[in-house]
């Protein structure tokens, strides 16, 4: 599903540049649930941004579902993101002036799906994450766990091939974190590839495979024993 070969990325920092990713080779299979771990500064967020087409890379190749993702125009990137990827963020990133249902339906707006159909689907996905009764609530009326579940429903509504989660449990207590992980696991079992960036071991252990980054290089790819 995802194939990275020798990915390099550096950020210009004044006169010098910061070499963040120093040759990443990674292969993630269809339907896998993988976690990327590393201390801050290890390059894990950069890697996720590249995977999410939110950022460009300098060298190497990135194939997503046999499509080469390189030097995309913003418009093209937006279309691929919309078609292939679902995002879940640490800070949820819901739009504050839209209710849960409208937030979930928003990606479909950019796919030009009709409003009534959009909202019907949004309710369906909210039901899937157990939040159907909360459809009309605004984000500030929801708890952290609920917000994250709304965000997950939003990520899923476009039926993406890959779900990218950046510290999805970072702002949640452990009980809620496990619930969210359970939800992500059930999504994975439906055949969606899930990639989670985290720095919590107990979260990483709930995935199939842990990829450890340090100083811009992969230092370990461990299978998790269940």
């Amino acid at each position: 599903m995802i194939k990275l070969e020798n990915i390099h990325k550096s950020y210009p920092m004044g006169k010098t540049s910061l070499h963040v990713l120093k040759g990443i080779d990674l292969h993630i299979k269809d339907g896998e649930m993988v976690s990327i771990m590393g201390s801050s500064g290890s390059g894990k967020s950069t890697l996720l941004n590249i995977l999410g087409m939110l950022d460009n890379y300098d060298e190497g190749t990135y194939h997503l579902d046999q499509t080469l993702i390189k030097d995309l125009s913003e418009t093209k990137a937006a279309q691929y993101r919309n078609k292939f990827l679902g995002f879940v963020f640490q800070s949820f990133n819901l739009i504050s002036f839209k209710n849960a249902m409208e937030n979930v339906a928003l990606p479909l707006y950019y796919q030009k799906v009709k409003r009534s159909e959009r909202n019907k689907l949004a309710i369906e996905y909210l039901d899937k994450v157990g939040l159907k009764p909360w459809a009309e609530h605004m984000p500030n009326e929801l708890s952290g766990g609920q917000k994250q579940r709304v965000a997950i429903a939003r990520a899923l509504i476009t039926q993406p091939k890959v779900l990218l989660a950046d510290e999805p449990t970072g702002a949640l207590d452990s009980t809620t974190s496990y619930e969210v992980m359970k939800l992500l696991r059930s999504i994975n079992e439906e055949g969606i590839t899930v990639i989670i960036v985290t720095h919590e071991n107990d979260i990483a252990e709930r995935t199939d495979r842990i990829i450890r980054l340090k100083d811009g290089r992969i230092i370990a790819k461990e299978k998790v024993d269940v």
Partner: peptide, 16 residues
């Protein structure tokens, strides 16, 4: 800024 970022992450094109 944030809202626009979210919109773009979930597939809004620059034109839109």
């Amino acid at each position: 800024t944030k809202e626009i970022g979210i919109r773009r992450a979930i597939g809004a094109t620059p034109v839109s």
